[in-house]
């Protein structure tokens, strides 16, 4: 069980959580805008169902309300690290496939990548605050994606952005849970009570 919160740590955590909520909220808004621009730019159908894309962390979770604070942070951290690599690769593909044709999309993609990186760092901050070790990143980064056709690349990009938009919502909810004062016994544990 984590050491009881000192007032300053609790304040610091609540501050980090509320800033994280704002960062995640802004990121979500930008991802939704980017998603709209991406769908239009790539000529995709916004309502298309996209099968789960290999290597893209799924935001979907069961019994979400029973997760511990540490579980929430660790799952978030792993996801955003993966998104950081996925977005960097999308940016590379976008330059390869579109070059100068749509610099706007490239800039929007780069902006979201920046926010994902910032949010990743923010999660690491929260874990450090809980004197939790920060899990190391996979040395050589995620495995190189399989060689995809252009349409598969487009769908993959759609899948990445959709999952990221859902993750941003989940992160906001997670951080709200973490920002709650120490819960009454038996209730879903916030951060302070993570094992």
């Amino acid at each position: 069980m984590a050491a009881a919160d000192s007032p300053s740590a609790a304040l610091r955590r609540r501050d980090l959580c509320s800033r994280g909520i704002r960062l995640a909220g802004k990121m979500r808004a930008d991802v939704v805008d980017l998603l709209d621009a991406y769908v239009e730019q790539q000529g995709l159908d916004a309502s298309a169902s996209v099968a789960a894309v290999e290597g893209v962390p799924l935001a979907a979770v069961e019994r979400w309300d029973e997760q511990t604070g540490t579980q929430r942070l660790l799952e978030n951290l792993a996801a955003y690290r993966a998104f950081r690599a996925l977005l960097a690769q999308m940016l590379e593909e976008q330059r390869e496939q579109l070059g100068e044709a749509d610099a706007g999309l490239g800039r929007a993609l780069a902006a979201v990548l920046l926010q994902v990186s910032a949010f990743t760092y923010h999660l690491e901050e929260l874990l450090r605050l809980e004197s939790r070790g920060i899990p190391g990143e996979e040395e050589d980064g995620p495995p190189a994606p399989p060689r995809l056709s252009l349409f598969e690349q487009k769908l993959r990009g759609l899948g990445v952005l959709r999952e990221l938009a859902q993750w941003a919502v989940r992160s906001v909810r997670d951080l709200r849970q973490l920002a709650k004062p120490s819960p009454a016994p038996g209730a879903a544990p916030g951060l302070a009570e993570s094992p």
């Binding site: 000529g43 298309a48 044709a101 252009l150």
Partner: peptide, 14 residues
């Protein structure tokens, strides 16, 4: 610039 998509909608995917 991103090309024209030729999409086949199957019962279980695209």
């Amino acid at each position: 610039s991103s090309g024209t998509n030729v999409v086949c909608r199957l019962e279980d995917g695209l």
